[in-house]
Every structure is written in C-alpha cells, then in structure tokens.
Design a protein around this nucleic acid. Sequence first.
DNA 1: CGTCCGCTTTGACCCAGATCAACCAGGGAG
DNA 2: CTCCCTGGTTGATCTGGGTCAAAGCGGACG
Lengths: 246, 246
Amino acid sequence: MYAAPDLARQDCSGCPIRHRAVCARCEPDELTRLEEIKFYRTYEAGQPVAWAGDKMDFVASVVSGAATLTQTMEDGRRQMVGLLLPSDFVGRPGRSDLSYDVVAVTDLVMCCFRKAPFEQLMITTPHVAERLLEMTLDELDAAREWMLVLGRKTAREKIASLLAIFARRDTILTPDGTREIRFDLPLTREAMADYLGLTLETVSRQISALKRDKVIVLEGKRAVQVPDFNLLMEEAGDDSDGGMLV
Amino acid sequence: MYAAPDLARQDCSGCPIRHRAVCARCEPDELTRLEEIKFYRTYEAGQPVAWAGDKMDFVASVVSGAATLTQTMEDGRRQMVGLLLPSDFVGRPGRSDLSYDVVAVTDLVMCCFRKAPFEQLMITTPHVAERLLEMTLDELDAAREWMLVLGRKTAREKIASLLAIFARRDTILTPDGTREIRFDLPLTREAMADYLGLTLETVSRQISALKRDKVIVLEGKRAVQVPDFNLLMEEAGDDSDGGMLV
DNA sequence: CGTCCGCTTTGACCCAGATCAACCAGGGAG
DNA sequence: CTCCCTGGTTGATCTGGGTCAAAGCGGACG
C-alpha cells in the first residue's frame, strides 16, 4: 500500500506509477513540465469523484486505491463500465462532460492535471499523447472483452471471469516462494453484481458454489485463494491454452 | 451509396469520409503523404476481413458498407463487440494481433494503410494521431454505453436501443422535406442477436411486439419507419429529455 | 458486553428469455 | 413452374437468474 503523499510533493521520480501511467514515456524535461501542473487529490472510500453530466475540469491518474465508473438508468439500474486501478487514467481531453459516475471504492489518491494546461502539454510533448492513445486502445480492448462477458456468459462464468481478473492483477507471492494465488476482493458483492450485470444474491450464490466445488477457497468474506488457476480459467469459459500452437 | 472506387485512385479530396475519418484533421501536405501509402480493398457481403488471432499487417478506414467485430467462445457463443460504419477505423497501431473477427456484413470498401508506414506517419504528422485518439475515446464511450445495454436492459429495451442507433445514423429526409425517420436494417436478426446478447427468436419476437405496439412500422422485413422518436427512446430506457436544463 | 448496522448468505418462488420445433415467404436455379 | 434454401416468424415448454423474505455475522460504538 502506498502512503498518501504529501500534497505539495513535486517529485515524480519516486512515484509508484511512474512507469505505467500516462507519463510512462516522458523524458526528464517532459516530466518537469508535467510536475509543474500536477496536483494530488485524495478521496475516502465511498466518496464520489465526479458525477455523470458534471463538467470535469481536470484529468487524472490513479496513484493508489481503486475507483469505479458506473452508468445509472433513471429507474436505478446500474452498470459498472470500468474499474480504475493504479496507473489508470480518467478524463477526456477534448470534451468536458462525463458520461458516467466516478466513485472511490477504497481510499484513493489521484494525480491530477488541470484540463487546459494538460491539453496544451499533449500538443507539445508527443510522448504523453502517444502513451494515452496506447492506454485508451487497451481500455477499448478490455471493454470489448467485457462485452462478451456481459452478453454471453453465465452467472458462474461471469464470477469466474471477474476472479480471474483480480487473480492476474493482485497475485501475492507468499514468503516461502510458492506461487500461490491469493488476493483480497476489492469490491463488495453489490459492486461485483453491478460489474457483472447480476444481482448481489446471484453473486453470493455463485461464489458459494465455486467454493463448494473447490475452484476457490475463501478465508473470511474477502480473501480468496485459487488452488488451480487453469481450472478457474476453464470455469470462466476462456480458453486458457491454445493460441500458441499452429 | 458510394460506388466502389477505382482501386488505383489516389485523390483523397473527393473521398466521402474525408472529413470524418482518421485523416479528418490533416493539412494538404499531410494528406499527400497519406495518399502515398494508402490502397483500397473491397470485400463482398459475408466475407471475412480478418480473424481473431491473425496478424493484421494493415490498418484501415471503412469507406462504404459495414463490418462487424465479433468475439467467439470455443463452444460457439458469439458476441458482437463493434459495428464499423463509414469513417470508422480498424486496427491497432503498436500491436499486431487482432482479438476479434472482422467480417463484412454488406459489400465493403476499405481504405488501407500498411502498418509500418502508418505508424511512422503517426509520429511525423500529429494530426493523424490526434484524430485517432479522439476517435478511440469516442469508441470507448460507445463501448461503455453498450455495456449498460448488455448488462442491464431488457430484451425490448435492447431492441429499441439498437433501432435508435440506426435511426440516428441513417435517417433519410423524404423528398417533401418532412423529417420522417425511416431506414433499412443493415443486419440480419441473427447479427442483431449477436450484438444484443439475445437469441434470434427473441429479437424477432420483440421486433414484432414493437410493431404491434406501434413504436415502429415495418415495411417488409428490413425497412423500418419510426413515427415518434421520443417514444422509441423511452422504450430504450434512455432519458431522451433532460441534460440541457439546470 | 450487548446492540445495532452494513454486508452477506440462504431459501422459496416466479418470470423473461432460452430452447426446441414447426412453419412461412421470397428469390434464385433448374 | 417447382424446388429448395436462407432468413424470418410463431408457438410450447423449460430454466437460469431475478425477486422477495428471513436470518447469520462480524465490527464499531455506546
């Protein structure tokens, strides 16, 4: 876990997301210019960062913590459309109003840039624009992958797919060096339901079912251990093998 | 309808997508450089453009016609993850393998650029990269909008949402100037089902239901007329009004 | 140390949409 | 003119996941 930084700190070189965020490709001089316009904001778990329809006058990178992007219909139905983890970028250079709610799900630290100077900077420092394009293309691929999950997978496959995502992101190497897959769920059952297009009851039932079938082992309600990752992938309906042959 | 162009033609200035595609922002000299590396390809309705997992050695803009992006699971379940219409862009500078199938659904003309020269050109002509970023961000927004449709909308709402998309894109002004909304469905029932995460039977039933309820008027199986666009939006579960007040 | 509250689990029942199956319409080929 | 073949419609039935309801389970707080 990354300690909330001193809000006045200016040094990007020790930043935990330095090598993965929009600034990843920047040369030292470009970084200096970014440092001049950046500022930090922190949010507590549960706090909104911005609402759909708001004008958001800044863009930002997640430094630590997690945030969700959700769309809501008038009658209250909700769909999570993105999950922001450290190094992910929010905001849309070139447009100002947001089309989804952004909410901190854990304590959150963001590295923000006021929109106008950032847009200016994108023109003068190609490495920022270049990296942002790459990140946006990755996001688009992920969104499309998720469309398959939402449109065609069963409840059990959906849960397994979500667990597989967390497993890939958060695997902890145990002290004795065995490559055991073990992580904490960063979301409540309700948030998982919003992500997967399910109800929280179905999420709970399917997690119980996967536990019963020994696909996962639960320690408490949040800690998950995956004894066999290939089995999990199979449950997710993804072809874990293949693709390298032929 | 745009006639299939002479495959050797080099003049971008008369191109029907000149002002909306990746090249929209190009200055005349940038356009000249694009012209030097471009070439056209045509596909007949139903033909594949590329398969998931293929290395695609070019990127392209749709000039006329339509293509679908679909992902397929091993057991045959399919989900359309994108619909390419004129001016839309396919391909991913920076990566080579495709993660979905690209298939022409109507006769299709594409303006292609070999990947390596295009990537080179992106570095030297910022207007291409700039426009591509903007288009990719739009695609991402659209993909996220679609996640709400797939995850939370009912079958009837899904159909209405799809019809609304076509209506917005393809509205034809009738000769006498009345703003009647009337268009042809570019997709079969099966393709609509793949787009919406439904079965083709459900698609057919819901279209019949919307017809019965006078939300749409069908002329034959493909021609659709929408007497009241607001009613259609309401059926889609979208808040057609609102957003401009406050 | 008890109680309250947010989160989770579990059960019983129901319904939207899937599945299985039959049939229809039109248009191209022989 | 008929045959067939592709895409579309419609009906009957089944079922995965939603809905409604009740109860467990920490952990914060008085």
